[in-house]
């Protein structure tokens, strides 16, 4: 699974959580999701849950800080999935 594949999945999940927003412009950068799609804490938890279910992984609370933008999210997921 490539970084690009993971990014597509993350965007799909965010789009499902935030159907009124256009999530297609989210790039592999360190711009916080909240600045791009106005994600609130409930949305954020939904995204985390959806990622856990999709990849059958556990994302502990302590790691939530890695999930605030696309770049760090992908870094985190790549490492996590590689170690599965």
């Amino acid at each position: 699974m490539t970084r690009e594949d993971i990014m597509k999945s993350v965007i799909t999940i965010i789009q499902e959580v935030m159907p009124e927003k256009d999530c297609s412009s989210i790039q592999d950068t360190d711009v916080p999701f909240v600045n791009i799609v106005d994600m609130d804490s409930m949305d954020f938890l939904d995204v985390i849950m959806a990622l856990q279910k999709k990849y059958l992984i556990e994302i502990p609370d302590a790691d939530f800080g890695n999930m605030r933008n696309m770049k760090s999210t992908l870094d985190y997921l790549e490492t996590k999935l590689a170690s599965k």
């Binding site: 409930m42 938890l45 939904d46 849950m49 856990q52 279910k53 059958l56 556990e58």
Partner: peptide, 12 residues
Amino acid sequence: DYKYNVKYVSHL
């Protein structure tokens, strides 16, 4: 589908 693992219960 997650073997009733309660970590997948929604916060909502």
